[in-house]
């Protein structure tokens, strides 16, 4: 696939204040590659939302990022509770975030809608009790 860069992150589900580090690191790497600011911003936002969801809703997980000449592909896999109704969680405003997390400004129910908005393709595979894998692709040459 002519890869330029492959990155792998383990996201700690217990360290709330470190959450977002993987997204920040990817942002730095893409900047170094000289990628367009618009692409970097879309990847950063989509990945941050996915990473936060892993920490808040799924006790952490692992993220793989593949950069090719055409696109940035992010694969976020967790062994959390899984998602029963994908259409429901994709709705703006739907959230099961607990109160203590809401007090910090999370739980607007906008994370997944943002991931859809800022990526060119979003795929959710989930099995209850087993986990969730989310794959997002941000194209380098076209706007989403």
């Amino acid at each position: 696939m002519n890869e330029i860069l492959k990155l792998h992150y383990v996201v700690d589900g217990n360290n709330f204040s470190l959450a977002g580090q993987a997204a920040s690191d990817v942002k730095k790497m893409l900047k170094t590659l000289g990628m367009a600011p618009d692409v970097i911003r879309r990847v950063s936002i989509a990945m941050y939302e996915g990473e936060m969801n892993m920490v808040i809703h799924a006790d952490g997980g692992e993220i793989d990022v593949d950069v090719t000449p055409k696109a940035v592909v992010m694969r976020l896999a967790d062994r959390g509770p899984g998602i029963a109704d994908i259409d429901l969680v994709m709705q703006e405003g739907y959230s099961t975030a607990p109160d203590d997390i809401r007090a910090l400004g999370f739980g607007a129910g906008m994370g997944l809608p943002n991931m859809k908005k800022y990526s060119n393709d979003l795929k959710i595979e989930s099995q209850l009790g087993i986990g969730t894998t989310i794959t997002m692709r941000v194209d380098i040459n076209s706007r989403g």
């Binding site: 936002i45 910090l104 999370f106 739980g107 607007a108 994370g111 943002n114």
Partner: peptide, 13 residues
């Protein structure tokens, strides 16, 4: 805004 995902989605560069 104070809701982080809202800001993430709507604030401009």
């Amino acid at each position: 805004g104070d809701l982080l995902s809202w800001v993430m989605g709507r604030a401009q560069e």
